[in-house]
């Protein structure tokens, strides 16, 4: 990355972290569109609990600490860093396979 692009990346990452850690504190806790329709139309009971619903970060860190704001902030921070890392790795893998001239 050239210098200007690096600045763009850093500013973009800072904005992303502000959204995930701070603005997320203002998020509505009402059901989203699909959950709302599921309740209204009577198919909410068809949903099973997620297989990983007991994991520490399930439901965006709910109950991780005894401070809900801290739970959300930690979930946002971890989520952004994990998504960035996984995304970077996946795109690198996709690109690298293209460079691989060794026949499979």
């Amino acid at each position: 990355m050239d210098r200007r692009t690096r600045i763009f990346f850093v500013v973009g990452l800072l904005v992303t972290l502000v959204v995930a850690v701070a603005i997320s504190q203002l998020a509505s806790d009402q059901p989203d569109g699909l959950e709302y329709v599921a309740e209204e139309e009577g198919f909410a009971d068809a949903a099973r609990d997620h297989d990983l619903s007991d994991s520490a970060l399930a439901d965006y860190g709910d109950g991780l600490t005894d401070n809900p704001a801290l739970d959300t902030a930690l979930a946002g921070l971890i989520g952004v860093l994990v998504t960035l890392a996984v995304g970077w790795a996946v795109f690198r893998l996709i690109k690298r396979r293209g460079d691989d001239s060794v026949p499979s």
């Binding site: 972290l17 979930a75 860093l81 998504t83």
Partner: peptide, 28 residues
């Protein structure tokens, strides 16, 4: 590649922010 990864991180972050839509329902 870094910008594509950043785009993923931003979409993740933005999806955390449910905004109110009507009484009893949010969207993201």
């Amino acid at each position: 590649i870094p910008l594509a990864a950043l785009t993923a991180a931003f979409v993740f972050a933005a999806q955390m922010v449910n905004f109110p839509v009507i009484a009893g329902m949010s969207g993201h």
